[in-house]
Design a binder for these strands. Structure first.
Length: 201
DNA sequence: ATGGTCAACGTGCCGG
DNA sequence: CCGGCACGTTGACCAT
């Protein structure tokens, strides 16, 4: 348990959902968890300002005041620098060991829990994006196969039609391949006989 | 008003 | 048993 969390433990009671995590191995028994957002205030534009930079630890009286003034929790917005550093570190490792986590948290003036949560959420976002990409790829593959299937069916139909035509033609004439245009040509009996005799000579 | 984003949380599962 | 993670959810904030 980190110091900052320890000192504000119990202050989230009555702040809506969250604020409790199960004690390991004891599902029924709950312990209050530090409400991390208590270190944030609203800027004039309504944007949450991270006060952790100069106030990591907070006192009970501080939090009492926060509790009274702000019933609802404030949403932490990570600064651009914090986000980009987290992103960079995620590019290197999608999971962090406790030492790395702590070091990064210290570097970013965040709590290890916040870094941990950020990485969990980041992994979830990556996975979501990946499945979306895979879905699109499969959709495309499916469309390609469908198109190919259509094309092959059409080709098959043409071949069958051609075959029927050939059978009908062969009753009266012989088909052969024209050497110049590479198309099937119809030979009458007389010509056929001529070619055959030339072949023998 | 409403939908999207995202930090934070609850819970269950798994490996050590 | 415990820590860490995935997954689903909540709620604050923001853009439209």
């Amino acid at each position: 348990m980190e110091d900052a969390e320890e000192c504000i433990t119990g202050l989230c009671l009555g702040l809506g959902m969250g604020g409790h995590v199960p004690i390991k191995g004891k599902q029924k028994e709950k312990r209050p968890v530090a409400c991390l957002d208590l270190a944030f205030e609203l800027c004039p534009k309504g944007e949450a300002i991270n006060l952790n930079h100069d106030k990591v630890e907070s006192t009970d009286s501080d939090n009492d005041n926060s509790n009274n003034n702000n019933r609802s929790r404030k949403k932490l917005r990570l600064s651009k620098d914090q986000s980009s550093m987290l992103e960079n570190s995620f590019k290197l490792h999608t999971t962090l060991n406790p030492v790395q986590k702590q070091a990064l948290a210290h570097q970013l003036k965040l709590k290890t829990r916040q870094v941990e949560v950020w990485f969990q959420n980041r992994r979830a976002r990556t996975k979501l994006k990946q499945t979306e990409v895979e879905r699109e790829w499969l959709k495309k593959q499916c469309q390609n196969l469908s198109d190919e299937n259509k094309r092959l069916k059409k080709e098959l139909q043409e071949v069958r039609a051609l075959k029927v035509g050939c059978i009908q033609l062969s009753k009266t004439a012989t088909l052969t391949m024209c050497s110049s245009c590479e198309k099937l040509v119809k030979l009458n009996e007389e010509k056929k006989n001529n070619i055959e005799s030339e072949g023998r000579n």
